[in-house]
Design a protein around this nucleic acid. Structure first.
Lengths: 151, 151
DNA sequence: TTTCTTGCAAAAGCTTTGCACACCG
DNA sequence: CGGTGTGCAAAGCTTTTGCAAGAAA
């Protein structure tokens, strides 16, 4: 378990490098730039947004490469693709084992993460009642953030 | 509160007609066909799927009309648009006031609905903690139903 | 060298829109 | 009639893909 942000970043980077090696894929300059920019982000970025940030560092990287690299991140488990209903896919960093859910502002698009063990437990109860074996879940709360609500 | 499926359908139909009237919109043959087909459905349909079913009844209805009518359904509250991760929007019937969530079997595709007021309350708590004004939420539990789990 | 990558541009897939004609009220 | 609705086709967006040139192993 890593305790620091840096530690996490190093760990995820290693995970990616291991994945590339295991698949006979290559470690390229572009992939490293994209990974670094991705690891710096706090929020859920669309491919377009990440692409723009990557170009800020190196204008020669193409959109398709960003797209394909994000898919690789998802494949090796360091990123997860999510859709929040605005027609754009977004990628978020997967930090370890913890599952988190989302608060999405329908005004400005802000996305906050939260965890609530009580809700998780109740979900287990529901699953038990229906004799389901839960593998996964997703919970999203849509509404207005304080700033948008006061407008 | 309606107790029967038929009663619900009649009620929703009326809601739609009232909505049309209140907005000065017109009650057309196409809109009625689309509404009827929509009300018959149990599952979450994409625009495309509904379009195909509507054409089964009346081949002269266009895709754009189905699309625009589904938007109307959403506006007047009898349908809700949902986006899963497959890049297609889907519409589901909204039955009354109650919000329901889903248990989805990843084995056979079975979808069960459930309601859990305790979870809803905890969601409110989370929202309050972040000073969000919740408009909507969605919760999906993915896993195996009893039948698939025992295979 | 051999294989994988990249960047461009084009293709694809779904949603939305402009317009002329048709229809409802 | 006047305004709304419809169907078609085209436009918009985002995501994917084909390919020739370039870079890693």
């Amino acid at each position: 378990m890593s305790e620091t942000i840096q530690g996490l970043a190093v760990e995820l980077k290693q995970t990616f490098l291991d994945y590339l090696a295991s698949k006979g894929l290559k470690n390229t300059t572009q992939r490293m730039i994209i990974l670094e920019v991705f690891l710096e982000q706090k929020s859920h970025l669309s491919t377009e947004e990440l692409y723009l940030k990557v170009r800020g560092k190196n204008p020669k990287v193409g959109y398709a490469t960003v797209h394909r690299t994000l898919k690789l991140f998802a494949e090796c488990g360091i990123a997860a693709e999510r859709h929040f209903g605005d027609g754009q896919g977004r990628f978020e960093l997967v930090h370890g084992e913890d599952h988190h859910d989302h608060l999405v502002c329908t005004g400005c698009g802000l996305i906050l993460e939260f965890e609530n063990p009580q809700i998780e437990e109740l979900q287990e109860d529901v699953a038990r009642q229906h004799r389901f074996t839960i593998e996964n879940h997703r919970l999203e709360l849509y509404g207005l953030c304080p700033a948008c609500a006061s407008k």
